[in-house]
Design a protein around this nucleic acid. Structure first.
Length: 631
RNA sequence: GCCCCGGUAGCAUAGUGGUAAUGCGUCGCUCUCGUAAAGCGAAGAUCGAGGGUUCAAAUCCCUUCCGGGGCUCCA
């Protein structure tokens, strides 16, 4: 007698299968075996060759599915390990997972450089061509230990497993729970991408491993598309554009410290003007505090104990001072200068402050990770019952800013970490308040358990850069510690000063450096008119039209437009090319036609030209585009 | 900090033991030109820094500084 099981398919229909049939059998019956990599039954992901024993939701996974990709890339990691073992028999494989885009494999005892990539890729292709099956075998722990003796990493893993399993790909055997694609030939294209150092179990105290990164696809075309995308992303790199557009530079004389050029200052100032306007409307006051403050303050704030590694120090008159890594302690001193009544709260005290943090040399990255940066900080001191409204106000402000730039962002709510300070009830209440605020304005978020700062839970806003990396920019953090440590109080309705304000730290841009870096990449240098350093450039067809060009230039300049004239001896084509590369928003070409009719030929960055435009009309259009901050 | 790669004129690169080359940019001259690179000429580099090997070092070795790609992803 044959048992049947019921499989519920993604389209809602059901399929009756014989118990013990493999996922591949089912796929064949359904006519969906093409591109099949693995199967999903309930929550479990299976090899296609594994028999199905229970009913449940059933899905055949292809490369189009996220899980399918994971299986595909993890299998590719095995191919990489197999190839490495053939070429470097002494290398010891450790782990090789799939990652967001591609896969890696960590080896001990492997010394290679990028020059070896080609050789390894060729060997991988050989493994692929052999069409080796991924064969699973459930084994005992004893057998696992026997198989992997000599590889302390695999042994350590085997030690932790009750029911080990292994996968065989030709002569390569890996301790692995799978699942895997049926055979190597499904991998149509593979490339190695990066080489890196890593530590066993991500622990710097443990063995140094060599991490080889790769990417793979079912077809060559997909690999080509991927490579094109990477190249496009590289063209957007803010470090290259920042140089070409003369926005900033970095120098050996100050690693991690940014030198802002005039064009960079234009962007910075435009962003700050917008920021000041919006903060005034949102009820903020602005303050400014010193960069260097005595050790005592940092002891009191807790930075001395918790943040010392990242701080810079100096001595003045034999006394120890620290350069501020954050603005809060300074701002708190201002709060404490006066007594406060509950009637005054909330106090929204903003400070655009220059913070220094000594980041490790290896993590510095253009404008995105620096050692000194301007933070558009603010600290809100409020009554506990005002917390929710204040959070909503902050989140709305952040949203307004990010929408202005067209950024997509993801919000993370980080909850109480293990090393938290304060009372659990306060934490629970604060976390609940954050959630409630987010729900109230119907904004989605991801919860990151135990990822909060030691002083309070927080909301982080992440923006994705052109290379797909995400960067935290805005943040909204609740803080119960600082008010305690600095004994902040306000006079309550009850006429006593036995009341602690709640403190909210928040930034919108995050850091001006990082935000401008992301802005450049996001727009590939084609900045919206209102922040653009080169708004207009007037290109002359010939020397004869210089007077007309300079007159038009003056008119625009007097109206506050950032404009210049290219009256060089170059051809018009060359001038257009230069202006395009400088990402000038509007090129105005002036020649005989324009000079005679008192009009302008206006060319946009995407190559469209409008002839015969009246100067007043152009100016009006410009002003409107600037005022509305058009994207 | 750790692993791999790199540092040559303002910028981008070539040069792997015999004292530096090319393009862009800059400056000068010619051309006055209609929408992504006109022509000719000139100036500009002790090859990141320090030390060593050698008759001879941009090139080989050591140290150091700076830059790039990574270092969260757990069979």
């Amino acid at each position: 007698m044959v048992d049947f099981i019921t499989l519920k398919l993604p389209d809602g229909s059901t399929h009756k299968a014989k118990k013990g049939e493999t996922a591949l059998d089912v796929a064949k019956v359904l006519g969906i075996e093409k591109g099949a990599l693995a199967a999903k039954l309930g929550e479990e992901v299976l090899d296609l060759s594994r028999p199905i024993e229970t009913s449940g939701d059933f899905q055949i996974l292809t490369f189009q599915d996220k899980l399918g990709k994971e299986v595909f890339w993890h299998s590719s990691a095995h191919v990489l390990a197999a190839a490495i073992k053939r070429l470097f028999p002494n290398a010891q494989p450790t782990i090789g997972p799939s990652i967001e885009e591609g896969f890696y494999y960590d080896f001990h005892n492997l010394q290679i450089s990028n020059d070896d990539f080609q050789k390894i890729e060729i060997e991988m292709k050989r493994v692929i061509k052999e069409g080796l099956k991924f064969e699973r075998e459930d084994i005992t722990q004893a057998k696992a230990k026997e198989l992997f003796k000599g590889n302390k990493f695999k042994l350590e893993m085997a030690e932790e497993l009750d029911k080990p399993s292994m996968y065989k790909t030709g002569s390569f055997i890996d301790l692995c729970c799978g699942p895997h694609i049926p055979h190597t030939k499904l991998i149509g294209a593979v490339a190695l991408t990066k080489l890196s150092g890593a530590y066993w179990r991500a622990d710097a105290e443990k063995e140094q491993l060599t991490r080889v990164y790769g990417i793979s696809f079912p077809t060559e075309e997909e690999l080509k598309t991927y490579k094109t995308r990477i190249e496009e992303a590289e063209r957007r790199d803010h470090r290259k554009l920042g140089q070409r557009l003369d926005i900033f530079s970095l120098h050996d004389e100050g690693p991690g410290f940014v030198f802002w050029h005039p064009n960079g200052m234009i962007i910075y100032n435009e962003l700050m003007d917008f920021w000041r306007q919006e903060h005034r409307k949102a009820g903020y006051q602005q303050v400014m505090t010193p960069i260097i403050l005595k050790k005592q303050l940092w002891l009191q704030s807790g930075h001395w104990d918790h943040y010392k590694e990242n701080m810079y120090f100096t001595q003045i008159d034999g006394e120890e001072y620290a350069v501020k890594p954050m603005n809060c302690p300074g701002g708190i001193l201002i709060y404490k200068t006066n007594k406060h009544s509950y009637r005054e709260l909330p106090i929204r005290m903003a400070e655009v402050g220059l913070d220094h943090r000594h980041e490790l040399g290896g993590v510095l990255h253009g404008l995105l990770r620096v050692r000194a940066f301007w933070q558009d900080d603010a600290h809100i001191y409020c009554l506990p019952e005002q917390m929710e409204d204040e959070i909503i106000g902050v989140v709305k402000l952040i949203d307004k800013f990010y929408k202005t730039f067209g950024f997509e962002y993801a919000v993370e709510l980080s909850t109480r970490p293990d090393n938290f300070m304060g009372k659990i009830e306060d934490w629970d209440r604060a976390e609940a308040t954050l959630k409630k605020a987010m729900d109230k304005i119907k904004m989605g978020f991801i919860i990151k358990e135990k990822d909060g700062a030691f002083y309070g839970p927080k909301l982080d806003f992440h923006i994705r850069d052109s290379l797909g990396r995400t960067w935290q920019c805005a943040t909204c953090q609740l803080d119960f510690q600082m008010p305690e440590k600095f004994d902040l109080r306000y006079m309550g309705e009850d006429g006593t000063e036995n009341h602690r304000p709640v403190m909210i730290h928040r930034v919108i841009y995050g850091s001006m450096e990082r935000f401008i870096g992301i802005l450049i990449e996001h727009f590939a240098g084609n900045l919206p008119l209102w922040v653009s350093p080169y708004q207009v450039r007037i290109l002359t067809v010939g020397e004869k039209f210089n007077d007309y060009a300079f007159a038009a230039n003056k008119k625009l300049f007097d109206e506050g437009i950032r404009t210049s004239v290219d009256d060089s001896a170059n051809t018009i084509s060359k001038k257009v090319r230069e202006a395009q590369m400088d990402k000038v928003n509007y090129m105005i070409i002036v020649g005989e036609k324009e000079a005679e009719s008192n009009t302008l030929a206006v060319r946009t960055r995407d190559g469209k030209t409008t002839y015969g435009m009246k100067p007043e009309e152009f100016l009006k259009q410009m002003k409107e585009e600037i005022e509305t901050r058009k994207l």
